[in-house]
Amino acid sequence: MHKTNEINIVVAMKREAMPLINYWDLKENSKKFYSNKKKKINLIISGIGKKRAENATIYLAEKTNNNSFFLNIGIAGHKNYKLGEIILISKITDNKTKYSWYPSLLWKTKIKKTPLITVGFPKIRYTTNFLYDMEASGFFKGAREFVGPEMVQCIKIISDNKKSSILNISSNKIENWINNKITIIDKLIKEFLKV
């Protein structure tokens, strides 16, 4: 059996990353690349969009241990889910290519699981029951070049729904939502690393 050593986290925006950087006491190694060697956590801020997420994931993969676990954390929209709700993604579909990835769901967790569609532009209308984001498919494309489906996961926090559009999202709200779920994320990561 492989031994997982590190976890590589890809986050799109600094405001999503800040609560995580503070919680795990991550130090900036180089621009937008943070880590805590003792905790074996690496984090990169990719920027918005799937291509950036893909490039950042590949960069992290090449810089770290070849059996690392990969995690994408970020915000996403859903028709009905409550703002601030945490979701573990069960399927990622790229809206353009229609290619799908299925992260293995092996974890002991009660967190709701839902599929997600990665779109090229922010979604104003929620036509399906899926979550919508702008990075996960790029992240999966990059990570799956290096590891199997058991080693790649995606956690999203709901930032918009049909009652509260993306126009209402603010930096403060994002930080609050992530801060509120940080212990759950931390617990989940410990579960991931048992693999």
């Binding site: 059996m1 492989h2 590891v147 199997g148 489906p149 058991e150």
Partner: peptide
């Protein structure tokens, strides 16, 4: 799909 880990699954 490639690179699945039978034992983990």
């Amino acid at each position: 799909i490639k690179s699945q880990n039978f034992r983990i699954q």
